[in-house]
């Protein structure tokens, strides 16, 4: 019998700590599949964020560095400048990339660092207990917006990908989602493109992945997947941004 589907080499043979229905597991796997398919596992250096994916190195079977909260792209800059022959990517959540690390994000993009950024947007802080993220939707209830996010007090959902798209140093940005098999396949294509760009020396490439956080959205895994097109994608439309 021919084996047509199996665990990527880059993904360790272990179960994850992520909640049922969480997007991280799929996103991890997609990244690892792409790395295997491009044959770059031995060249990859990843930077894990502070957030739920802080111990991503327990699941990824290649070199990984941690970074202080929000500083992943600064760390990536240091690594990539010293080792341009390696493939360097950051894996960051919305709080890490678009709140505490906004300055690092904008300036790394503006320098046009030749790195790949995997940006997980689930509109909430997971690791710390479901607080408001910069991408939290209006009306969304979180631990720090118990009555729902109101623009008067908390501003609007931050569209960091659209903001970055105006920078000449940025070469590729696409927003994808993981809520259905066809979308997962599209997400994989975008991740592949973002890594290929780095291999070809094209420059800064970012894939924003809309992912579910059933736990802090207060939904079942199934309901959370439905909520992505019904809620999230209304604010964060999918497709190529740059």
């Amino acid at each position: 019998m021919q084996k047509i589907y199996s665990r990527p080499l880059s993904l360790k043979d272990t179960s994850t700590h992520y909640c049922p229905g969480c997007g991280h597991g799929i996103a991890h796997r997609l990244v690892c599949e792409v790395i295997d398919e491009l044959g770059i596992r031995e060249r990859v250096i990843a930077i894990a964020p502070v957030g739920c994916a802080v111990i991503a190195y327990d699941y990824w079977d290649f070199d990984v560095s941690e970074a202080a909260h929000g500083r992943a792209m600064a760390v990536a800059t240091g690594i990539k400048r010293m080792r341009p022959e390696n493939i360097v990517f950051t894996y960051q959540g919305d709080g890490d990339l678009a709140a505490i690390g906004t300055a690092e994000t904008i300036h790394t993009a503006n320098r046009g660092e030749n790195i790949t950024v995997i940006f997980i947007n689930n509109a909430v802080y997971g690791m710390t207990g479901g607080q408001m993220a910069p991408t939290t939707l209006l009306g969304q209830k979180t631990a720090t917006t118990p009555g729902g996010r109101t623009p008067e007090l908390y501003g609007y959902p931050l569209k960091i990908s659209e903001m970055l798209a105006v920078l000449p140093g940025v070469k590729y940005i696409e927003r994808v989602s993981l809520h259905s098999p066809p979308e997962v396949l599209k997400a994989k294509r975008a991740i592949t493109q973002a890594f290929k760009n780095q291999m070809d020396g094209v420059g800064f490439s970012l894939v924003e992945i809309i992912a579910a956080c059933p736990t802090y959205w207060g939904m079942s895994p199934q309901k959370a997947q439905q909520w992505i097109p019904e809620g999230m994608l209304k604010e964060f439309p999918l497709g190529r941004i740059k």
């Binding site: 500083r71 760390v75 240091g78 690092e104």
Partner: peptide, 15 residues
């Protein structure tokens, strides 16, 4: 902040 974390990255890469 960025400067010291760039140093963190470069040092992690052995530089």
């Amino acid at each position: 902040l960025a400067a010291i974390n760039m140093v963190f990255g470069a040092a992690a890469a052995g530089a």
